[in-house]
Nucleic acid binder design. Structure first.
Length: 245
RNA sequence: AUCGUACCAAAAGU
């Protein structure tokens, strides 16, 4: 089973979901019974191809075969629906998940919060974050990254900065994703001072800068009419092992 | 016996 699961996962990653399904259908003839990993991997692969209805029918099929879905099984499906923007069906699936005795975990919440952010519904996303906490789920750096980025994309950079502060108050350290999102947001709003200040802060905290953040800085400096500073950064980045693309 | 497989977030360009 383990071997099959690994192959099925690899095929799904390469976008060869149909080949993965063939493998899966072949398993019973090779004396292997698909387990919850097999189904979850396959369903996630289908969802990534936006073939959600096929994934849902696998959810029924697995239960008929006596295999019980776990939270990860549901998370994949919920993610598929969220990316499609179908939050109504996504939350129905959460209800379904409870009925099957599965408790939403932090990934479930992150997925739903991300879905709401994609729709630009930050108010609902923030409310869900509260509910997450009251349900004893601890927001992680991914959660904060989603929220910060969601706020930045709505142009609510100041609010995003507040989230960063509150996260530090809770003793959680932002990662480079969160910094680059915020630096980019500050530049987009024309606030190059704070953007550069945040960048300095990042360096002081010994974060390893990457190509993405350098690109954001260079783009930002050019936008505010400082091409020579941008040029300096472009030289600096290669000395730090970041390759311009 | 131990170990081993699954789900979520960032820039620009086109």
């Amino acid at each position: 089973v383990l071997t099959f699961n690994l192959i099925i996962k690899a095929l799904c990653k390469m976008g060869l979901v149909d080949r993965a399904i063939e493998m899966f259908r072949d398993m019973p003839y090779k004396n292997c019974t698909p387990d919850v990993y097999t189904y979850s991997t396959l369903m996630d692969g289908l969802c990534k191809e936006d073939r959600i209805d096929e994934a849902i029918s696998l959810l029924d099929e697995m239960q008929i075969e006596g295999c019980f879905p776990n939270p990860v099984t549901f998370n994949g499906l919920i993610n598929g629906l969220c990316r499609r923007g179908d939050m109504a069906r996504a939350s129905k699936l959460v209800d379904n998940m409870f009925l099957k005795g599965c408790i939403p975990n932090e990934v479930t919440y992150n997925t739903l919060i991300h879905g709401l952010c994609l729709k630009g519904n930050l108010e609902k996303a923030l409310r869900l974050l509260d509910r997450m906490v009251s349900n004893k789920c601890v927001p992680n750096h991914v959660t904060y990254g989603i929220i910060v980025n969601g706020l930045v994309r709505q142009g609510r950079v100041a609010d995003a900065a507040l989230v960063l502060e509150s996260m530090e108050e809770r003793g959680r350290h932002p990662n480079e994703y969160i910094y680059s999102s915020l630096v980019n947001g500050l530049f987009k709003e024309g606030n190059s001072k704070d953007a550069m200040r945040l960048w300095q802060e990042m360096i002081e905290k010994r974060f390893k800068p990457n190509t993405v953040i350098y690109t954001a800085l260079i783009d930002g400096l050019c936008r505010v009419g400082k091409p020579d500073e941008a040029k300096k950064l472009m030289i600096e980045m290669t000395t730090k092992g970041c390759i311009p693309n």
